[in-house]
């Protein structure tokens, strides 16, 4: 259970970056940290001691595998994380071109 608590600590570091940082890139880094921690937590929950990777071979016909379902879910989540990060960074780049700063306290003007 201790290892799950470490994952939650990583989640809280990412949340800290999102809530308290004023730099847009730091906020996006916080999102990425949260994604890593949740993916890792899923993979750790599906782990079984002494089990093999879920690939059927002739040598290991006994079905002693780790849980393949969290791995399938996380595989989807990793790819979606890449898409969201790319969109966030594109928006950050456009904001920088307009305001010449990443500081969210200075990005106040609502100009179309």
């Amino acid at each position: 259970m201790t290892i799950f608590v470490f994952c939650i600590a990583l989640f809280l570091i990412g949340l800290y970056a999102i809530v308290t940082k004023r730099n847009l890139i730091k906020i996006i880094i916080g999102f990425a940290l949260i994604e890593y921690s949740v993916n890792l937590l899923f993979a750790l929950i599906g782990f079984r001691r002494g089990a093999l990777a879920p690939i059927i071979t002739k040598v290991h016909s006994a079905h002693n595998f780790v849980d393949p379902i969290p791995q399938a879910l996380v595989l989807t989540a990793i790819v979606i994380a890449l898409g969201t990060t790319a969109v966030m960074l594109a928006i950050a780049l456009r904001i920088y071109e307009r305001y010449k700063t990443f500081d969210i306290a200075k990005i106040k003007k609502l100009k179309g």
């Binding site: 993916n39 990777a53 879920p54 996380v74």
Partner: peptide, 18 residues
């Protein structure tokens, strides 16, 4: 690397590429 240690090679490959 942790994905490899918890027997998830597919995840490790995708994670490195991403």
């Amino acid at each position: 690397i942790m994905f490899i240690l918890v027997q998830a090679p597919d995840l490790a490959i995708v994670q490195i590429v991403v």
